[in-house]
Amino acid sequence: MYYFNEKEIVVPGQLLADDPKKSGPGTYVLGGKVYAAQAGLPKLRDGVVVVIPLKGPYKPEAGDWIVGVVTDVKPSSIEVDLGGYLTAVLKYPERQGPPQGLTVGDVIYARVKSSNIRGIFLESEEMKKLTNGIIISMTPARIPRLIGRKGSMIALLKKETGCNFWVGRNGLIVVSGKSSEGEFAAISAIRVVEKEAHSQGLTDRVAALLKSAKGRNHDDREQGDKAN
């Protein structure tokens, strides 16, 4: 027996199911029953109840792509800030010097190699130094929605704005385009995704927003010309 509706938000302590075997991520078992451990949307996924959080901290896992800021360069390792709360480490052979000449303040896009009691370590092989763009942050819990099913949302954003996106699971995103208009349109679309992460028809609304933004930027430019 289940006690939730997939469209309604649940809160910590809310009863979700009475079979303890159905307890998935975002839930807990008490007295043989399953309760929500976080505020979020309840779902039945692979036979267990999960709560998809709408907000919450980033928990690094091997294989995650992250965006980070270099905060320290040591003789054989580099410290990378993952958005204020977590620091990851990128190791390199001392005799080769820091990969891609990284220095403090650089932004990188990299994959998590491992995350455990020893710390968070990044892969150096696929690491990319980002040299241009605007960096923004959003709650890590909503990053999956920004990426979209099989990358559909980010593909839409790329298509409509002509910008490149580096999306970190840790909640940092770098947007880089040819014009600041395109970047601003992309950022406002990202803000819509963040705000309305789990609403119906989100993709359509983002597409409509970007189309109208294109028109508006065009108008701005014309007015600007007149003013000059």
Partner: peptide, 11 residues
Amino acid sequence: LADAGIPMSDL
């Protein structure tokens, strides 16, 4: 705490 998305058993 609940607003921050911290896992908890109850309010």
